Amino acid sequence: VADDLYRQLTAAGVETLYDDRDERGGVKLGGMDLMGLPWQLIVGPRGVAAGIVELKDRRTGEKFDLPIDAVVARLSA
């Protein structure tokens, strides 16, 4: 799912950094915070099983659960 979303976002012209390192989630999220990226898209096994991913607006700290098929439209708007 993460690979597919990366391809779709890139094709839609959304600059995307895909962290596929073999690290714990906290390590990855900490690195993204240090880089100052405006959005974080969290793709995890439980969310994928439910058909959702988590989108976090780093400026406000607000988190949204989005259906997987709505991610590209939300981030390319």
Rank of each mutant, 00 (worst) to 15 (best):
M32H: 10
G51N: 09
L17A: 10
A49E: 13
D22C: 04
V43A: 01
G44D: 11
E54T: 12
G36A: 04
E54M: 05
R7Y: 11
V14Q: 08
L34G: 01
R46I: 09
D3Y: 12
G61F: 06
Q40W: 04
L34Y: 04
L37R: 11
A73E: 15
G44W: 01
G25C: 02
A73G: 15
V27A: 14
G44R: 06
G47S: 06
T60S: 15
V27T: 14
D65W: 06
D3V: 13
A11V: 06
G26V: 05
R58W: 07
M32N: 00
G51H: 10
V48D: 10
A50I: 01
Q8C: 07
Y18P: 01
T60N: 12
A70R: 13
T16D: 04
V53R: 05
G51F: 12
P45E: 08
T10E: 14
K63N: 05
K63G: 00
A49F: 07
P38L: 08
G44M: 02
G61T: 11
E62L: 12
G13K: 10
V48Q: 03
L37M: 14
G26H: 06
D20C: 05
G25S: 01
K28F: 00
D3A: 15
E23M: 06
P38Q: 11
A11K: 15
A11R: 13
E62N: 13
V48G: 05
D33A: 10
A73D: 14
L37D: 07
E62F: 10
D19K: 01
I52D: 03
L9Y: 11
V1I: 11
L75I: 14
F64Y: 12
S76L: 14
R21G: 09
A2R: 02
Y18A: 07
G51V: 07
L29D: 00
E62A: 14
I52R: 08
R7F: 12
G36E: 04
G13Q: 14
V14K: 10
L66T: 07
K56D: 06
L75T: 13
I42K: 00
R7E: 14
A12K: 11
A77C: 13
T60P: 11
D4F: 09
L75K: 12
G47W: 02
K56W: 03
R59Q: 10
A73T: 13
V14S: 10
D69S: 10
I68P: 00
G31L: 08
E23V: 10
I52L: 12
A50V: 07
Q40D: 00
T10F: 07
V71N: 01
V53L: 03
Y6E: 12
G26C: 08
W39S: 02
G51M: 05
F64M: 12
V48W: 05
G36D: 01
